[in-house]
Design a protein around this nucleic acid. Structure first.
Lengths: 234, 234
DNA sequence: CGGAACTTTGAACCGTGTCAAGGAACGTGG
DNA sequence: CCACGTTCCTTGACACGGTTCAAAGTTCCG
């Protein structure tokens, strides 16, 4: 750490922590990120960040807030394909002109910047590549979750994934982490109805494994949940 | 087409057709593919091609047969994360030493070769990139399918995807295409039981939209199915 | 203080799973 | 070419997890 460097605005903390966990960043990488702040953008909850099929433009780096890739059916059914958390990239791998493969919406208020270009071989480039690999692992996991787990198991598996991902961004403390989703959004993530999400949450509370209050989750016994869904930390 | 070039073995036909559809290939690209034939490998049905977490080695290019990415739970439940068809790549994007994110198994007998390295800017490189983009689009689609569609709809949507993908490899003729999966494997793909797959297939036959006999599918009215799942051709 | 968004609960319903058994297709060895 | 075992497909009866519909309660915010 060079103490003479201008620090990032604190908005960057989570994203920097996350990217640094993926690959060590050089001073130049830090500088590139700091420069991106000039183009910071803010999206209110429910705003569309990218539209499916529309030109995707520059890759984006989320600084704060939660976003989600979404597929909406013409009859109103909706499935969240994956969540985008601070430190995550949107569309990092595709080339300039490619259309966005899915739409992305802000779930809570989201702050983001254009992801600075990373020259091959830099730490930033390695972090981007690692992020892409993790993202596809998350997609595989989401498929297995929806295809083969019960509601209770889906929730357990999802909570464990969120804990791991938020911890990598320095946003979890121990077994607690923020959870700003409404039960309806959670239902659309896990392929269930909000009514059933509610019942399943109650059931976890009754089992004493979950404490969810005022937007914060506390897992009493993550190992128990992990055993339930034979969860393997990567 | 340079008539003086040595032709590919016919085994390559589907893969070449598929890759050429993604990006035009130069003579050098063709030559690189032809050279790969020396290292051709064959996997009997049910054999494991890659093990989850084991070093993935070189990316692979499937020439013939169907493979699948699989997640198996300790209690025996199984979910096929995605199918790998002729012309598809396995692990094209990750770097040499990365562990395979999921295991991959041969569903029918599979022939494959190491995917020839593609220098940046070549048609082959563009084809690989396009294939990666398509693969992630397929993952998103699979998530929406499992999360929000009924059994009948899942099957319809899946049949349409297979028709499109096989057609891109020149393996579909009109509305017919090969379908070598057992109902049990299909069930593990669509997150259902084989019993229910069977009933759903019967129901489609009764509706006159599906003809599935001796490993070949014929869709009587793809548009009707497409409307059912509001399917958009890319 | 009032309204909107979100959570909770109950009762009835239904899509899919489970269990079990019989039938058809297929490959293999005699 | 037949006999046999194995794998796959088909069908029925029943159970259950999750959905639907509806309404009351709670929290949040302007």
């Amino acid at each position: 750490m060079n103490i003479a460097l201008k620090p990032h605005s604190s908005l960057f903390a989570a994203a920097i922590t996350r990217l640094s966990n993926l690959a060590p960043l050089s001073d130049a990488d830090h500088a590139a990120l700091r420069d991106a702040e000039l183009e910071r953008r803010r999206f209110a909850a429910h705003r569309e960040i990218q539209g499916e099929g529309k030109p995707a433009g520059t890759p984006l780096l989320v600084l704060s807030g939660w976003a989600a890739r979404v597929r909406t059916f013409s009859d109103g059914r909706r499935q969240l394909l994956g969540l985008v958390l601070p430190g995550d990239l949107i569309g990092s791998w595709h080339h300039g002109d490619a259309p966005a493969p899915t739409s992305v919406m802000a779930v809570s208020e989201v702050t983001l910047v254009p992801a600075p270009a990373a020259a091959p071989g830099t730490g930033l480039a390695r972090a981007y590549a690692a992020a892409a690999a993790l993202e596809s692992a998350q997609l595989y996991r989401q498929i297995a979750r929806l295809g083969r787990l019960s509601a209770y198991e889906r929730l357990a598996d999802w909570l464990l994934e969120m804990r791991e991902r938020l911890a990598a961004a320095g946003l979890a403390s121990g077994n607690s982490f923020p959870m700003p989703l409404t039960q309806e959004v959670l239902a659309d993530t896990l392929g269930l109805t909000s009514v059933h999400i509610n019942r399943t949450l109650q059931s976890m509370r009754r089992d004493g494994v979950l404490d969810l209050r005022s937007g914060t989750v506390r897992l009493a016994d993550p190992e128990q949940l992990a055993a339930l869904v034979d969860y393997r930390t990567r």
